[in-house]
Each structure stands twice: as structure tokens, then as C-alpha cells.
């Protein structure tokens, strides 16, 4: 297993002018993995990326690369390349020279450089753009040049700092697919930073959800979505109803004035907890069939399903359903025990 761990951050923290940006992070990245660092701005995800890239040194802890400590090795000696958020292309060079930059430093001969750059241009669909100036390219094309410029050096890890943030939605979807394909095709480890949870879910093998310089949860997209560890992760990944509850005993929880069966345990007796219920896990039935009764307050059709707000026990519940109930209708709400997620209360900043 250990030889699979390509990059390993061991107890890494970073403090800027007395403000901690990262608090003792432990994180390993496997070879050929697509890992996404996901979180709101200021959560430390970009700092983590910059530490791996070598642009920052950790205040404490160390960064292992293939088992070797690289914490104090400068960026130009790391087998890691970065795609920056605003591309950082060299505007005084044309597309070809931008991509060839790293190869020229390695003093490769002209023929090899031509072949490698040509292959990269083909990969990012920019063949024929060699002599164009980078300023004349569109945002999406500049992005591709930035990716080609990094990948041509055959890094072991490619770091991507919100590379799609500046693109419009359609282009963004296309680039998501292309990036994922490239990663599979080339077999390179990708570390991707984003604040967009949909992007993270659709592209990653592993997601690390971060907040306030700490990793909240790390796991596969399915794990993170289905089994969020705390209310923050649940709220950040997808939409959720998060309500206060009290644990009566293992597998019995009280919320919204009712007692329900659930599948979680291990909490103290009468311990206050967060109860998380996904909107698509609420089933609307006849009022008498359910413990929770409410009134439909609003209905919005958003394509795949209806988004309804149901008021029950003084709480507004978000419900997704393919069947519509009219506004003002009395409904019952059923939730299967396994869809009631119980989480320890965590105080957030």
C-alpha cells in the first residue's frame, strides 16, 4: 500500500503572519488518483496546492514525495507541474514557445521538442495554433495552452488551481470531460482545487472537503455525498435539510417533535445532534400515512424534478420529487431510517 502513496502530507500547517491557513493536515495522494480539494474560499485548499507545488514552505510538518521529504526543495526541482487559475501564460511568446518552455530548460534537441509539443497540441486540440500569440486566444484556448505547457514536462503530479473558474458553463462542462479523459489516458496523478461541488463530484476519484484549514472529510464522491460526516460537509455537498435533534438511544432519534428509527449509534444518551436529510430522500404521502405532516408552501419546476418547500413542525423542508403536490396541499413526509443521517454537533466559527 505504501508505495501507492505518491505524495504524503504529514502534520502540515501553514501560518501567514500569525493567521493559520492550514492546521496540521494529514493527507496522502495515491499514484494515478484524481484528488479534489473542495471547500469555500479561505479554507486552505489553494495553500495545500501551493505547498505541494513548492511555492510555500510548511510552518510545521513535512511533505513526502515517493517517500522522500521535499518540504524545502524549490519548485523547479520538483516533478510536479501546475496549471494556474489565470493561466499565467508568457505573453511575449507564441503558443509553441509557451509549451516548449520547460523542454528548452531541459536542453532537449529541436526535433524532440517539435515532436513533443506537436503531440501536446494534438492532445488539447490546438494543432495549427503554433505561431499564434497567446493574447489572441479565447479563454478556453488559453486554458488548453496552460494545460499543455504543464503536461509536456511529463510531471508525476499535475496541480490544477481552479482552472475552470474563468470559463462559461458550457465550456466548463466540456473541459471537465476533457480533463478527466486526459487524466485517464496519461495516467498522471491530478490534484484539483475547486469550490464547485458539482465539478468535484463529477470528476474526482477522491474528494477532500476542507474548511478553516482542516480536512472535514475525505472519501469517494459517493461516500461524501451519501455519508457526510458532519453538517458542514452535508450542507456543502448537495442540498440538505439540517435540523436539530436529540439522540434517545442507539438507533432512536427525536427531531421535529417526533421520535424516529434510524441506523446510527454511538452517541451519548440524550446527546444533541444534527440530523441531515437529503431533499430527494423525502417521500411525500397522504398525511395520515406519516408521522410528519406539513403544508406545501411553494413549488418550482426545475427540469428533472419539482423543488418543493413543505412546512412541518415549524421547519421549512426542502423536498425534491418527480410528482407534484399543489401549493397548500396537506402532505405527509416519509423518510427511510437509513436516509436519516445523524451527525455530531460541531461548532463552526
Amino acid at each position: 500500500m505504501t508505495d501507492q502513496q505518491l505524495v504524503h502530507l504529514v502534520g502540515v500547517s501553514k501560518i501567514y503572519d500569525g493567521t493559520p491557513a492550514l492546521k496540521e493536515i494529514d493527507l496522502y495522494i495515491r499514484r494515478n488518483e484524481f484528488l479534489t480539494l473542495l471547500g469555500p474560499s479561505g479554507c486552505g485548499k489553494t495553500t495545500t496546492l501551493r505547498l505541494i507545488g513548492g511555492f510555500e514552505q510548511p510552518t510545521t510538518g513535512k511533505i513526502l514525495f515517493d517517500g522522500r521529504d521535499i518540504s524545502s526543495i524549490p519548485p523547479y526541482k520538483r516533478r510536479v507541474n501546475t496549471v494556474f487559475q489565470r493561466y499565467a501564460l508568457f505573453s511575449h511568446m507564441n503558443v509553441f514557445e509557451n509549451i516548449a518552455f520547460g523542454l528548452r530548460i531541459k536542453k532537449m534537441d529541436e526535433k524532440t521538442i517539435r515532436a513533443k509539443v506537436g503531440k501536446m497540441l494534438d492532445l488539447v486540440n490546438l494543432t495549427g495554433f503554433e505561431t499564434r500569440s497567446v493574447d489572441s486566444l479565447s479563454g478556453g484556448q488559453q486554458q488548453r495552452v496552460a494545460i499543455a505547457r504543464a503536461l509536456v514536462n511529463e510531471p508525476e503530479v499535475l496541480l490544477l488551481d481552479e482552472p475552470l473558474a474563468a470559463l462559461d458553463l458550457k465550456l466548463r462542462r466540456e473541459m471537465q470531460h476533457e480533463l478527466k479523459n486526459m487524466q485517464k489516458q496519461l495516467g498522471i496523478t491530478f490534484v484539483f482545487v475547486t469550490h464547485d461541488q458539482e465539478e468535484a463530484l463529477s470528476m474526482s476519484d477522491t474528494i477532500a472537503v476542507m474548511k478553516d484549514g482542516e480536512i472535514q472529510q475525505i472519501g469517494t464522491p459517493e461516500d461524501i455525498y451519501n455519508e457526510p460526516r458532519n453538517a458542514f460537509v452535508a450542507g456543502f455537498i448537495g442540498e440538505s435539510n439540517i435540523v436539530d435533534g436529540v439522540m434517545h438511544e442507539d438507533k432512536v432519534v427525536e427531531f421535529a417533535g417526533q421520535v424516529f428509527d434510524c441506523v446510527d449509534g454511538g452517541f451519548g444518551k440524550m446527546e444533541p445532534v444534527d440530523v441531515v436529510i437529503r431533499p430527494e430522500d423525502v417521500k411525500l404521502v397522504q398525511p395520515e400515512e406519516a408521522k410528519l405532516q406539513g403544508v406545501v408552501k411553494s413549488v418550482t419546476f426545475i427540469g428533472v424534478h419539482y423543488e418543493m418547500i413543505v412546512q412541518a413542525a415549524g421547519i421549512d423542508w426542502l423536498v425534491h420529487s418527480t410528482l407534484m403536490e399543489p401549493v397548500g396541499a396537506k402532505v405527509g413526509m416519509l423518510v427511510a431510517p437509513m436516509d436519516i443521517h445523524i451527525m455530531k454537533k460541531v461548532s463552526f466559527g
Binding site: 507545488g53 513548492g54 511555492f55 524549490p74 519548485p75 523547479y76 510536479v80 507541474n81 501546475t82 494556474f84 487559475q85 489565470r86 493561466y87 499565467a88 501564460l89 508568457f90 518552455f101 520547460g102 530548460i105 531541459k106 505547457r149 504543464a150 514536462n153
Partner: peptide, 18 residues
Amino acid sequence: LDKNLYEAALDLGAEPWY
């Protein structure tokens, strides 16, 4: 200047003076 420009050069293998 794009503030990442210098870092991009380092990232691609350039030593500071280069």
C-alpha cells in the same frame, strides 16, 4: 504582470535568474 507568472516559470523548471 500576472502574479503567478514568475511562479509558472519556476514550476516549469526555470531557476530564479533564468
